[in-house]
Amino acid sequence: MSELLLSCVSAGYRARPVLRDFTCGPIPAGGLTALVGPNAAGKSTLLRAIAGLVPARGSIRFDGRELIGLAPRERTRLLAFMPQALPQDTGLTVIEALLGAWRALPDGAVLYDEAALLQRVGQILDRLGLVELGMAPLQSLSGGQRQMVALAQAIIRDPPLLLLDEPTSALDLRRQFEVMALLRDLAREGRSVVVVLHDLALAARWADHLLVMHQGQAHSDGGAEAVLTPVMLRQVYGVEARIEPASSGERLLLIDGISSSGR
């Protein structure tokens, strides 16, 4: 199965390098990987570097191929990136937005005929519970609904690598649950799914693999039990916290205060 391998990745913006020689363990396929860490840790920049939206140096390998320097056409076949910002006000309908997500590919006009593509759109609408909104213009949708459309756009082409920047930030509790379950299903079907999450409880509940980022570096990675520890929370987030087992077997994260020796 195809792993995502990151080594010595440096990336950032004109006057502000964010990642400096970022290296971490292999990010496995067939599982859901949560990218967590405090604000400005470089989570979004890492996703954008993998997606080729910020210039990067070093090595980013996926499925045996080097992504840095790969032609955009090749890259879009391998991955889809969902930015944190919600789709802006536009009169485009949900169906048009989904068709566009396919047709905007360099070879998107040839891969599917219109009828088959519309069936695929219908399938995605079904899978994300967006059927009722198919003909609604995006400007009439709520933030959460727009986020669902953005997710639909990312998964419609079914690429082997999905990069999602806070896909649940605008969603209510039920939708969060549905989306995380869907993402885990997509991962279990063999895809690599990397998700930036702010909510550690959500990450602990759903992710097979956590990657903790701190100041542009990988702090630790592994399963939730190994990674989510009071020590990590103190070092990375600067809080005093306990991890307590709940009656259901889940692990609860309790924040007691701000650590004095913190960041």
Binding site: L53, R73, R75, A80, A104, L105
Partner: peptide, 8 residues
């Protein structure tokens, strides 16, 4: 940003 994320 979205267009770029979709490969445009």
């Amino acid at each position: 940003e979205r267009a770029r994320g979709l490969g445009v």
